[in-house]
Simulated scan of single mutants.
Amino acid sequence: MSNQDQQPPWGKKQKPQTPEEIVAQLINKLQDFFSDKKKPSASPGDSQDPPSSPASPFANLGKLLSVILILFVLQGVYSSFFKIAPSEVGVVLRLGKYSRTTPPGLHFKIPYIDHLYKVDVENIRKEEFGFRNRMTGQETSFDKRGFDNESLMLTADKNVINVAWIVQYRVADPYAYLFKVANVRQAIRDNSEAVTRRIVGNMDFDYVLSNRELLAASVKKELQEQLNKLFPKGASGVNIGTVQFQDINPPDQVKPAFNEVNEADQDMKRLVNEAQETYNRVIPKASGDAKKIVEEAYGYQAERINNAKGETQRFNDILVEYKNAPDVTRKRMYLETMKDIMPDVQSVYVIDKDQQAPLPLLNISSAKGLPAIQSKATDTK
C-alpha cells in the first residue's frame, strides 16, 4: 500500500499512533525550532540566492531558556500534587523546617519549597538476633551460622547459653523517626542486645530455659524504657510491639552433656511425682483412719462417762429409797434381779439346807416356755 493510500481524506496528516512516532515527531519539532536556516522563497527572475544575514548569538540561548522555563513550570505543577497510601503518612518540610504531617489521600504542596517524606506507619518492622531468615523459593529457612556473637550469653551461674530472639516495632512518630535519630534500626539493635544480655545474665541457666515468656515480657518493658530514657519525649519515634524468643539452647559443644543432665532431671521429677502420688493416696487415708479412731475413742469416752454418771445417779436414788423403806426396797431389788436373770436360766437346782443331796423335782416348766428345772440326785451310801 502506498503513502497516498494511507493519507486520510481532505489532505489531513495521519496522527502518530505509537510512542516511538510521538517521540520522533517531538524531536523533529525541536530541531525545527532551534534551526536558524530559513528556506528562501524562489523568484522567477533571480538566478542567485540572496546573501544570508548573520545569525544573532543570543537567538538560540533565548529559545533554550524558554524551553527550560516551560519544563521547569511543568515539573513544578506535576510535583505539587502527591498521594499518600492508606498505610503511610507524609511528613512535609518547608525550606528544611517541619511544616505538617499529612494523612492518607491526595494533597498539595508548594513546588520546590516543600519537601515530602513518606513513612509507612502500619508496617511492623522486625530485627532478628542470633539468626536470619533465608528465602529459598516458597520456603523460609533459618540460618544461624556466623551469628554466635549475637546469641551466646553468660548466665548468673556461669553457664553459656545460646539465645535467638526477635524484636518487632512500629513507627509511632514519623517526624522523630526520620530526623531525631540518625539510625533508628541500629539504635534498636544495640539497646535490645544490651537489655537482653543484662536480663539473661541475672538469671540462672535453668530459669532461662523454662521461663522464656517471662523473659520476653521483661525485655520488651526494659527496652521501651531504655529507648525513652535515651530519646526523651518519644524522640526515637518507635513503639516496641513484641519481643519473642525463638530458640534457647545450650551451645552445640555441650548439648550431649546437657541432654544427659536433662534426662536425669526428668527422671528425678518423675520419681518425685510418683512419690507425691503415693503420698497423696496413703497419707490422707491414714489421716482419715486416725481421725476415725480418735473420734471413736471420744465417743467411747463419752458413753462410759454418761453410763457411769447414770449408774451413780441410779445408785443414789436407790440408796435414798432404801433408807426410807429397807425391806420393801430390798425385796423389789431382788425381784427385779430375778426377773432379769430367770429368762436366761436353763437349769434350776433347789437344795434344802438340811438335806445331804439334791431333791429330784418334776420338770414342769418346759411345756410352758419357762426355763427347765432339773435336779440330779445322787445315791448316798
Results as ranks from 00 to 15, higher is better:
Met1Ala: 04
Pro9Gly: 01
Lys12Glu: 04
Val23Gly: 03
Asp32Tyr: 05
Phe34Asp: 06
Pro44His: 08
Asp46His: 10
Asp46Leu: 13
Ser47Val: 14
Ser52Leu: 12
Ser56Tyr: 08
Ala59Gln: 12
Ala59Met: 09
Leu65Val: 15
Ser66Gln: 14
Ile68Trp: 13
Ile70Asp: 07
Phe72Ala: 11
Val73Asp: 08
Val73Cys: 13
Leu74Lys: 04
Phe81Cys: 03
Lys83Leu: 10
Lys83Gly: 00
Val89Met: 15
Gly90Arg: 00
Val91Cys: 00
Val92Cys: 11
Pro104Gly: 08
Leu106Arg: 09
Ile110Asn: 08
Pro111Asp: 10
Val121Cys: 06
Arg125Phe: 09
Arg132Thr: 10
Arg145Cys: 00
Gly146Phe: 04
Gly146Cys: 06
Phe147Trp: 02
Asp148Thr: 04
Asp148Glu: 09
Leu154Gln: 05
Val160His: 03
Ile161Gln: 04
Trp165Asn: 01
Tyr169Ala: 03
Arg170Asp: 02
Ala176Thr: 00
Ala176Phe: 01
Phe179Glu: 02
Ala182His: 03
Arg189Ala: 06
Ala194Ser: 04
Met203Asn: 07
Phe205His: 11
Val208Leu: 09
Ser218Glu: 14
Leu227Ser: 07
Phe231His: 15
Val238Leu: 09
Gly241Trp: 06
Gln253Lys: 10
Val254Gln: 08
Ala257Trp: 07
Val261Gln: 12
Asp265Asn: 11
Val272Gly: 04
Gln276Met: 07
Glu277Gln: 12
Arg281Trp: 10
Val282Pro: 00
Glu295Gly: 07
Glu303Met: 11
Ala308Leu: 14
Thr312Asn: 13
Arg314Ile: 11
Phe315Ile: 13
Arg332His: 07
Met342Asp: 02
Val350Trp: 08
Gln356Tyr: 12
Gln356Met: 11
Ala357Arg: 13
Pro360Arg: 10
Thr380Leu: 15
